[in-house]
């Protein structure tokens, strides 16, 4: 009786193990493309459309070097999501820090994708849940959505062009949950303002940050000094 029960439990768990194994394989294939990149420098244009923030597009240069050296140099003030594009590869590289499962299929950017749900093993970490939409034909990440304790949900759409073989996007569109920003009144001292721009409309809850990448310089070697402050 007991042996039958154990067999039934094991049989019930089989699909979960299979999904986990498939998910790991998909992730490994996707990351194999990223791992071909030893370093890169790329010109970026960052356009932020955030409620309560008026800003112009900013040009910057991003430097990356394996394993996780990252630097952005911009003359102007650029706004990025708190969980920016460097965090995801960093997190996925440590295979012991998460469990991945296939949870379905979805069409993203006209491509049929496999939806992976990634659960961090550390319950006390900031990241609660990560969802990845991966095109199994090209092994490219087309969409990601991370839910964090402190920053809410941040989703990103990835568009590819010149560097498809390395899994590097030409465009990333982040959507961030914007909490009601509080302006420190003592510092915003337009005390004599006679008119208010408050239109009474509720402010949007999401902000959008579009990053366009151009002129990738791949695997040409970047000195460590670049990453020092």
């Amino acid at each position: 009786m007991i042996s039958r029960l154990i067999t039934l439990i094991l049989l019930g768990c089989l699909p979960v193990f299979a999904a986990a194994q498939d998910a790991t394989a998909i992730l490994e294939q996707m990351m194999a493309k990223w791992n071909r990149v030893k370093d890169y420098a790329v010109q970026v244009n960052i356009k932020s459309e955030i409620p309560l923030i008026k800003s112009f597009p900013v040009k910057a240069t991003i430097y990356f070097k394996q394993k996780d050296q990252f630097k952005m140099l911009s003359k102007g003030i650029a706004i990025l999501p708190k969980q920016n594009f460097n965090e995801l590869p960093k997190f996925l590289r440590d295979k012991n820090s998460y469990t991945a499962l296939i949870t379905g299929t979805e069409v993203v950017q006209t491509q049929k994708t496999t939806v992976l749900t990634v659960l961090p093993t550390d319950d006390s970490g900031d990241l609660v849940l990560l969802k990845l939409w991966i095109d199994p034909k090209t092994d490219l990440l087309l969409k990601s959505q991370s839910t964090t304790r402190s920053n809410g949900t941040i989703s990103a759409i990835y568009e590819y062009g010149s560097q498809t073989t390395f899994g590097l996007p030409d465009k990333m569109i982040f959507t961030v949950e914007v909490k009601k920003f509080k302006i420190p009144k003592g510092l915003a001292t337009d005390i004599n303002r006679t008119s208010s721009s408050d239109t009474g409309k509720p402010s949007p809850k999401n902000g959008k940050i579009t990053i366009t990448f151009a002129d990738y310089q791949l695997n040409k070697g970047i000195k460590d000094e670049v990453f020092r402050n």
Binding site: M72, A78, I79, P81, N84, N151, V176, E177
Partner: peptide, 8 residues
């Protein structure tokens, strides 16, 4: 900066 980071 709870949600965003300023670079520059």
């Amino acid at each position: 900066e709870q949600t965003l980071s300023f670079q520059g």
